[in-house]
């Protein structure tokens, strides 16, 4: 297993380099210009000077190598310096956002908690809701519980978050005035009162996302349970006189979890990716909102860095999913 993991990690290096090159070239070829949001009253000569100051005058390969150096050498050094108080990165050029002219990684670090606070709980809550629903729905197939569960997950699947989010705002913020419609990212939890405010401002975005996540995972869980419930080993377990609880929860569930765990693990990078639409609707301003504003502003270094971080996470969680497979199913061995 260790061998396999190391081999996979090594293979992922050229993969990631290739991904970063593709992202870079795509961004470079894409139409759009970081100066397009500057008002027309700023004359073209000034815009040209600004473009030069952004380093856009350099040829493509130089800019790509610069970015690689900054991402893999300078940024880790900065992180190291930050942790241990050294000064390796002193005076070195970091990856700078076109929009704010500030280091991209600083902004990522600033945004990460905001995203994790909202998207993380919604994922956990989604899973916690989805698993029991999936299990019961499959065990009591076509019962009223299954019908209602199917109906709710269809709603979760088919109603886009920009609709459900605005609907919640209209009902709970505008009409009932229970929750704030705009998320306060500067809010800090210091006592019970402020904790309660944090819960209040999280309720709407978290429930919108949790519904969406739960809908997907519960369907996987149900389908996977149904596959296993009709297997011979289940009949054998029952014939041996085991209680239904043991049959369902330890025999069937363990086998059914294999594909579901993959789905859950592969979904984890999307937590870090943030929820672009939900973040916009509730002004959570996490990584998703940052990515979309960067795309609109043609802020190539920001988009490049963020998408590359997502790529790393996806490759990593693919590996984790594969390893979990081996742990859950003793028949699967990689060596």
């Amino acid at each position: 297993m260790l061998n396999y993991t190391i081999r996979r990690l090594l293979i992922s290096i050229p993969t990631l380099l290739f991904i970063s090159l593709v992202i870079f070239l795509l961004l470079d070829l894409a139409p759009g210009d970081p100066m397009s949001s500057i008002p027309l009253t700023v004359p073209p000569e000034v815009k040209e000077k600004m473009r030069e100051a952004l380093g856009l005058g350099e040829p493509v390969h130089i800019r790509f190598l610069n970015w690689l150096y900054q991402f893999f050498v300078v940024e880790p050094q900065v992180a190291w310096d930050h942790l241990f108080g050294t000064d390796f990165a002193e005076g070195k050029q970091r990856i700078i956002s076109f929009q704010s002219r500030s280091p991209v990684m600083t902004v990522v670090a600033e945004r990460m908690p905001q995203t994790l606070w909202v998207v993380g709980p919604s994922y956990v809550i989604g899973i916690l809701i989805a698993l029991p629903i999936g299990i019961i729905s499959a065990y009591k197939q076509y019962s009223w519980f299954d019908q209602i569960g199917t109906f709710i997950s269809m709603i979760g699947f088919s109603i886009p978050t920009f609709f459900s989010g605005v609907l919640l705002i209209v009902v709970f913020s505008v009409i009932l005035q229970w929750f704030p419609s705009i998320y306060d990212t500067t809010h800090t939890v210091t006592d019970w009162g402020s904790f309660w405010y944090q819960v209040k401002q999280m309720i709407m975005p978290v429930s919108v996302l949790a519904l969406y996540n739960a809908a997907q995972i519960s369907r996987f869980m149900r389908a996977s349970m149904l596959d296993n419930l009709n297997q011979d080993y289940v009949r054998t377990a029952r014939a041996k006189g085991m209680s239904e609880k043991v049959v369902v929860l330890s025999h069937v569930l363990r086998n059914s979890m294999i594909p579901v765990v993959t789905v859950i693990a592969l979904g984890v990078p999307t937590i870090f990716g943030g929820a672009i639409i939900t973040e916009q609707v509730f002004q959570v301003n996490g990584l998703g909102q940052m990515l979309i504003t960067a795309i609109y502003a043609s802020d190539a270094p920001m988009v490049q860095t963020l998408t590359f971080i997502f790529a790393v996470l996806i490759v990593l969680f693919n590996l984790i999913a594969d390893i979990l497979y081996g742990i859950l199913d003793p028949r699967i061995r990689y060596d």
Binding site: I169, S173, V174, P180, S181, I182, Q283, V284, N285
Partner: peptide
């Protein structure tokens, strides 16, 4: 505060009074 769109901003001042 920033983020969202013009409709959400308008709502926050004219409908919910948060801003």
């Amino acid at each position: 505060k920033g983020g969202g769109d013009a409709a959400a901003a308008g709502r926050a001042v004219l409908e919910t009074g948060e801003f």
